[in-house]
């Protein structure tokens, strides 16, 4: 009696295992393409992927299954380094792809020169999201360090997006005070107004929007627009600061993996497709700023004009920015070590 029950249980588990293992299996004329991306591109690639699949099918007769993986940019890059076999990576910052290139040698160090516009088919910037009516009267960076203003931004050590936020703030501080010391002072004051340090950009948005914490969220422009649209229309408004940073989320084929899977051609075509007018249109609709001049002109009204600093021009490139600001014991850490007192 008990015996039957236990064997029944075992048989059921075995059956379940079998049921789950069946299915899958590729037929000829089909190809899998794994795109490892960061969090905010979910909606973007969901819109773009079918278009590319149709075009590729028409061109080659091959059916392409685009598989997506999303997560924090740093975490995703680490997964690729540790063996997640991405054919293409589309991450939040060039530093994460640089690291993949340096640690795995699966793509050349000069990967960023292989595609136009620093390999970033879309770009964005950092803006503020405030509550309806802008009750704290926030218009520019200097409003964020006023006493009593609570700022929500994620931890730059765990979030790629937050590094852009930090650098934009630093750039403002340096521009107004015209010294690194002034910049540091500004950034210290800014983080003193931060009550919650989420580990990722989407977590920060949820904290601000759903939990009602804070007066202003520093965010990617595309994330701010999406949050405004998805989570309660009319409850939030976007404020464009006087100066911000040119945030370029780059894309690259991971040659080592693509070669192994025999997907080099389709992977390259996939990234090229991102620069086509059709894809650029979807990019603009997903609140990223398009590169294509015609599309950009069409959506010009959507995206405010902001003076944009660049990583290479104003911060000496990612390697330097990383070492100076975000490494262990670097400026960001010392800000919090001081804050403890």
């Amino acid at each position: 009696m008990k015996r039957t029950k236990i064997s029944a249980a075992l048989a059921t588990s075995a059956l379940l295992a079998l049921a789950a293992c069946s299915g899958g299996g590729k037929t000829k004329g089909e190809v899998d393409l794994l795109n490892v991306s960061y969090d905010p591109t979910r909606e973007l690639y969901r819109a773009i992927d079918p278009g590319f699949a149709t075009e590729w099918k028409a061109k080659t007769g091959e059916t392409v299954n685009i598989k997506m993986s999303h997560g924090g940019s740093g975490k995703q890059s680490r997964a690729v380094i540790d063996g997640l076999e991405a054919d293409v990576v589309t991450l939040a910052l060039a530093y994460d792809i640089d690291t993949i290139a340096a640690k795995t040698k699966k793509l050349p160090a000069d990967w960023q020169a292989r595609l136009p516009d620093n390999s970033a088919p879309y770009y964005s910037t950092i803006v503020f999201l405030v509550r309806k009516g802008n009750p704290k009267n926030i218009h520019d960076w200097n409003d964020l360090i006023r006493p009593g203003v609570q700022v929500i931004t994620p931890n730059p050590k765990t979030s790629g997006g937050a590094r852009w936020n930090y650098l934009a703030a630093w750039g403002y501080g340096r521009k107004t005070g015209s010294s690194d010391a002034a910049a540091r002072d500004y950034v210290t004051k800014l983080y003193n107004n931060v009550p919650v340090l989420d580990s990722g950009a989407r977590g920060a948005t949820t904290t601000f929007v759903e939990r009602g914490i804070g007066d202003v969220l520093i965010a990617w422009e595309n994330e701010a627009m999406l949050a405004q649209q998805e989570m309660g229309k009319g409850q939030f408004q976007i404020v464009a600061p006087s100066v911000s940073v040119l945030a370029e989320p780059p894309v690259a084929v991971v040659d080592g993996n693509a070669k192994k899977h025999g997907t080099q051609a389709v992977a390259k075509a996939y990234l090229d497709y991102l620069y086509t007018p059709a894809a650029q249109e979807l990019i603009a609709k997903a609140h990223y700023r398009p590169r294509n001049a015609a599309v950009a002109a069409k959506y010009a009204a959507t995206f405010p004009q902001i003076k944009l600093l660049t990583i290479d021009g104003d911060f000496g490139g990612w390697a330097k920015a990383q070492a100076q600001h975000f490494a262990d014991g670097a400026i960001f850490d010392t800000i919090f070590a001081q804050r403890r007192r």
Binding site: L34, R202, E210
Partner: peptide, 23 residues
């Protein structure tokens, strides 16, 4: 590895949906 439809378990799927603001 978070590959949608392939290596996402139910708890991971919950996280993904949550991160898509699809509460």
């Amino acid at each position: 590895g978070h590959i949608r439809g392939e290596t996402n378990t139910m708890p991971l799927h919950v996280e993904i949906l949550y991160n898509e603001y699809n509460f």
